[in-house]
């Protein structure tokens, strides 16, 4: 089984590399606003959009204008998503007649989808109309991903330009990212998913007859709605037989494609990519994992191409891959272990021709341990958050890895755009530390890294740990926070820590035992999501603006090379060290204690 797991990982990385390189080169052409052969018809649509919006695509923006445009665009998007949810009962595209969404849930969901988090306090099939799913949520899946790509382009231009005040034009970047990259890839991928069995329709939900009727017991309620009890105080049970089941329908494939390609992660259904209508086959599962990493990996090559040195892109990709492989190996090994409590009961948990073995609670049999553990590592290394297995049911160490990958700041491939700009901020910090050690003014790609750049990099890196640790602490101190916890003890602490790590780092997955669709959690997590996104983007754009104004110096014999194994090791070390220094005390209270309790 271990051999199968690592063969799957090797195949995944091999196919990813083969696909990411051409995508990265293509993304560079999109970012450099060059004509793309064969897509002249899209250029006409692009120019029409600029004319309608009154935008001059040739005019550049300083970093502050770029940031304000980005914030206003995303702010208006948030208000739009909120309004649509609050009005959905009176709008078309609602065959189930679903009611309007409560104000606190609509607020949380609006911030969630705009910030590329896609944290879902609600259950999609029982809450959202088709119109809300398509126009509000899928629309923001495109725009939030395009926003991330735009910021990555802006930062790359900061490195590549010479004595310029402009870092590009936000409106051009977001238009071209959507029109040339996200839309075409999503159409291709959605058609592939439909071929695998993902549904795409506007039907009302269907009641179907079960092949085998199911008989089950359920507590009876009295006229007052309270459970009936017998003379001994035990609940009175009634026997029921279910002969039919309601199957939720909807335009799933069109949302599924961008959910993954845009590292958004919000599922059409509550079960997300564990649902057979979202992710029906092992092949669809393999390509879902690939699509999560496709653009983040491709952007490493985009970076190399736009700064004129592909070795720089390979170095960033190498650092990301090194962390990812180690993290994935830990999840694979942890989940393949027999659960000690079940082992004590004599239950067979060995891998065989008939079963995956290991810890199968919360996992789909069609995926088994290998594809579930790899998906968990992929979705949390990238800031996607789609799940094909329930992370809350992972072994303590298996569940700790997704938690840590988020806490590294979502820079191990990371979100679309945000992974690259996050890792480049760590690269700036790495050359600064190296400069301190050898007593030279730090340089990265010929740009001097000065006081302002390091201050902004420090803010960008420290925003998310502050939100995570403060949010977790406040939540555990107040009753509405503690009320949402399902499991007592260490795992309950992990549920809250995971929620804030996921929200502030814009991942969106959960230890889903936590009951988080309450006014308290909806507000607290919205604050973490918004500022975890935009309080990082602003200092990143400030660095881009600062770097753009500087001359690009030629490398000399004393310049530290930033494309070799030494720099990759330094970059990995900085990412891991910052993550460890921030989070080890919290991890010790959660998954580490839980592991020790389980194995004592």
């Amino acid at each position: 089984m271990a051999t199968q797991s690592f063969l799957l990982l090797a195949a995944f990385l091999g196919v990813l590399l083969a696909l990411a390189y051409p995508v990265g080169v293509y993304l560079a052409k999109v970012g450099e606003s060059t004509q793309i052969r064969g897509l002249g018809w899209l250029a006409k649509a692009e120019n029409l959009l600029y004319r309608l919006a009154g935008i001059s695509p040739e005019s550049g923006m300083g970093w502050k204008s770029y940031a304000i445009a980005l914030l206003v665009f995303n702010g208006i998007g948030t208000l739009f998503v909120y309004a649509l949810q609050r009005l959905q009962a009176w709008l078309p595209g609602n065959p189930q007649g679903l009611p309007n969404i409560s104000p606190d849930s609509a607020f949380n969901t609006a911030v969630s989808f705009v910030s590329n988090t896609n944290w879902q306090g609600y259950s999609g099939e029982s809450t959202m109309s088709y119109l809300s799913q398509m126009l509000a949520l899928t629309g923001q899946n495109f725009f939030s991903a395009a926003t991330g790509i735009a910021v990555a382009y802006a930062l790359i231009r900061g490195f590549s330009s010479r004595s310029s005040k402009s870092i590009g034009n936000f409106w051009v970047d977001i238009t071209r990212s959507t029109l040339y990259v996200l839309l075409p890839l999503s159409v291709i991928f959605a058609v592939f998913l439909m071929g695998q069995g993902v549904i795409q329709n506007f039907s009302a939900y269907k009641d179907v007859n079960l092949i085998d009727p199911i008989t089950y017991s359920q507590p009876k309620n009295g006229p007052d709605g309270q459970p009936l009890k017998d003379a001994n105080g035990n609940p009175v049970l009634g026997t029921l037989t279910a002969k039919t089941q309601t199957l939720a329908m909807g335009p799933v494939a069109s949302q599924e494609a961008i959910k993954l390609l845009g590292t958004n992660g919000g599922g059409f259904f509550n079960a997300n990519s564990a649902h057979p209508f979202e992710n029906p086959t092992p092949l669809s599962n393999f390509f879902q994992m690939l699509s999560i990493f496709l653009i983040p990996a491709g952007l490493c090559f985009t970076f190399g191409r736009m700064v004129g040195d592909m070795r720089q892109g390979w170095a960033v990709l190498g650092a990301m891959t090194a962390i990812f492989v180690v993290a994935t190996a830990v999840v694979l090994i942890a989940e393949q272990q027999a659960h000690p409590v079940l082992q004590a009961l004599g239950i067979d948990q060995a891998a065989s021709a008939l079963q995956s073995g290991g810890n199968m609670e919360g996992k789909e049999t069609r995926f088994g341990i290998s594809a579930s553990a790899l998906f968990a590592a992929v979705t949390t290394a990238a800031s996607c958050g789609a799940v094909n297995a329930m992370h809350d049911s992972f072994m303590p160490l298996g569940g700790m890895v997704p938690l840590v990958l988020m806490q590294f700041g979502e820079v191990v491939f990371g979100g679309v755009g945000s992974g690259l700009y996050g890792m480049l901020i760590f690269a700036v910090l790495a050359v600064f530390i190296a400069g301190l050690m050898i007593g030279r003014t730090p340089e990265y790609l010929g740009k001097k890294i000065q006081s302002f750049d390091i201050k902004m990099a420090s803010i960008a890196i420290l925003v998310t740990p502050t939100l995570v640790l403060a949010g977790t602490a406040i939540t555990l101190m107040v009753e509405p926070g503690r009320a949402g916890i399902l499991n007592p003890g260490a795992h309950g602490f992990s549920e809250v820590l995971y929620a804030f790590s996921s929200a502030a780092n814009n991942n969106g997955s959960a230890f889903a035992g936590l009951s988080a669709n309450t006014p308290f959690y909806n507000m607290m997590l919205a604050i973490a999501m918004w500022f975890g996104r935009f309080a990082v983007i602003v200092p990143v754009l400030a660095i881009a603006g600062s770097l753009a104004t500087k001359k690009r110096l030629e490398a000399t014999a004393g310049t530290m090379p930033t494309h070799g194994p030494l720099f990759i090791a330094l970059l990995v070390g900085v990412v891991v060290l910052v993550g460890v220094l921030n989070y080890v005390p919290a991890l010790a209270l959660g998954p580490i204690v839980e592991h020790l309790q389980l194995t004592k």
Partner: peptide, 23 residues
């Protein structure tokens, strides 16, 4: 309650823009 949450969204936007302006 809508006014509270719409106000919160507007406050998020204003705070973020102020952060950018004061960087």
């Amino acid at each position: 309650m809508d006014i509270v949450y719409i106000g919160a969204i507007v406050a998020f936007i204003v705070l973020s823009c102020a952060f950018a302006a004061g960087c």
